[in-house]
Structures are given as C-alpha cells and as structure tokens.
C-alpha cells in the first residue's frame, strides 16, 4: 500500500514544526501575537476559537502562504536546499476548494506536475488518489460542475496524491451538507491512518470532539491553550475556553 509514511522518496521528516514568538500585524492591527507552538510528528490537532481569533491566519502562516511580521516558523528540516522539500511535503485544503476548469483527474495531474512528479507517473497516481476517495467514476467530469461535497473530496484527493507529511485543513466542512461532512471526516481519518500529520480548524465542536487528539485554543489573536483533547473538553484551563465550550462566546 502506498502511504505517505512509507514513501521511499521521503528522506527526512519536516516535523516537528515550531513557532516561536510569532506575530502577524496588518496595518496597525495585531492579528496574532506571541504564538509559541510545537506540532509533533503524529496526531490530529484541531484549532478552535471564536470567529476572528486568528485560526485561518495561523494555518496560512504555518503553511507558508503568509510570512510572519516577527518571530520564527521552523521546520525540523533545515538548510539551504530544504525549501522545495518543505513545500512539497505539505498540503492544504481550504474552506472553498479552488478547482481548475478542467476534469477532476486533470486537476490532480496538474498538482502533481507542479510538484515535479514525472509525467509518466502522474496519471496513475492521480487515479489512485481519486479511487481512494470514491471519485474514480467521475475522473473525466469537469471539476467545476461537481457538487460541493464532490469538489471538497476532489480537493482532498488532490492533497492525497501529493503524499504530504502534514495536511492543513481550514474549515473544510463549513460549507457542506451533513453527508458530505461525514465523507470529509472519513477522509481526515484516512490521511491519519496513512501517517499524515493533521492540523485542522473547525467551528463544529462535535467534529472537534470526534477528531481531535490535541486542541489549540486561540482567542483574540493569542494562543491560550494547547492541551490533549480529553483535557481540553473536560477541564479547560482558561476562562475564555470554558466560555467558548459553554457556547457563551460568539463565534
């Protein structure tokens, strides 16, 4: 079985990921302040917090779509030639998948081409990824005319084909109907089973309880808690997290 963990190409691990004193400012607003966080080699981290807490921003900083205003974001892998490897070994799934105006399979193949996968391998890897998420019958279907749930599954299949060591998911289910939500959660478990590190934001507390190994709680741009899920849901450390769990904080 081909899994991310067993990928022979992978020489060294990216993880753990370490954030030190990370700040992000936009204009004169500080949107994230003094974030210290370590993302270990294994597990499923769920990032929780009210709306505007900076969850999506934190994901984008970790994934490298944005640069921090100050502080350090460090991967275990380092050195002069590490940048392409770091980019190639992570993937992200967004709230609204951005799919290209071409077939489902061609979307996956395009991502593989960007990653530098040899032309001869792309189609086979793309089909394998589609099959894993039940999309192989739709391989020739234009991505833009698929349903919302199918599109998100395709985004997951695309990420799967890239064999990432770490997968970021930013509210992947908030625009989906319940049956599609279930499919995404199953997909997250599939990635996890293959050894992929999961970091995900959600504002569905039930989903968080179902999936989380550990929880990062953000409020107002600060990281207030990073604890095992069981601890977080039973005995939150901060007053804000307690209020959040009671539903007293506006999301």
């Amino acid at each position: 079985m081909s899994t991310a963990a067993k990928d022979p190409v992978r020489a060294a691990s990216l993880l753990p990921l370490t954030l030190e004193q990370v700040c992000f400012r936009h204009g004169d607003q500080t949107l994230l302040q003094d974030i210290n966080l370590s993302v270990s080699e294994r597990g499923k981290t769920i990032v929780l917090g009210p709306n505007g807490a900076g969850k999506s921003l934190l994901m984008r900083l970790c994934h490298g779509l944005l640069d921090p205003s100050s502080g350090d974001i460090r991967w275990a892998l380092d050195g002069r030639d590490a940048a392409p490897t770091i980019r190639r070994q992570q993937a992200m799934v967004f709230q609204r998948p951005v799919l290209l105006r071409r077939s489902a399979l061609a979307n996956v193949v395009h991502a593989l081409a960007l990653q530098g996968v040899a032309r001869a391998e792309r189609t086979a890897r793309g089909e394998e990824a589609l099959e894993r998420f039940g999309l192989l019958p739709l391989a020739g279907r234009p991505a833009r005319v698929m349903s919302g749930g199918e599109q998100q599954r395709l985004a997951l299949a695309r990420a799967w084909a890239l064999r990432p060591e770490i997968l970021f998911l930013d509210e992947p289910t908030s625009a989906l109907d319940p049956s599609a939500v279930k499919a995404v959660e199953d997909a997250v478990l599939t990635f996890h089973a293959a050894g992929t590190r999961i970091v995900m934001t959600t504002h569905d507390l039930g989903q968080a309880r179902r999936l989380a190994d550990d929880v990062v709680f953000l409020c107002d741009g600060r990281l207030l808690e990073h604890t095992p899920a069981e601890t977080f849901f039973r005995q939150p450390q901060s007053a804000e997290a307690a209020a959040f769990l009671r539903g007293d904080l506006v999301w």
Partner: peptide
C-alpha cells in the same frame, strides 16, 4: 485573487501560474 492561495499551496510560482490562469480564463 481567487486562485492565489491554492496555487501557492500547490507550489506554483507566479510565472508558472500564468499558463494555468490563462487557460482557466479562456
């Protein structure tokens, strides 16, 4: 604006994004 984050996430630089964008905007 619509594609930037996704393409950057997939490892596409701006130059490499040009043919993709032109094709999708056809």
């Amino acid at each position: 604006d619509e594609y930037r984050e996704q393409l950057q996430s997939l490892g596409s630089g701006r130059l490499r994004a040009i043919p993709t964008l032109l094709w999708d905007a056809r």
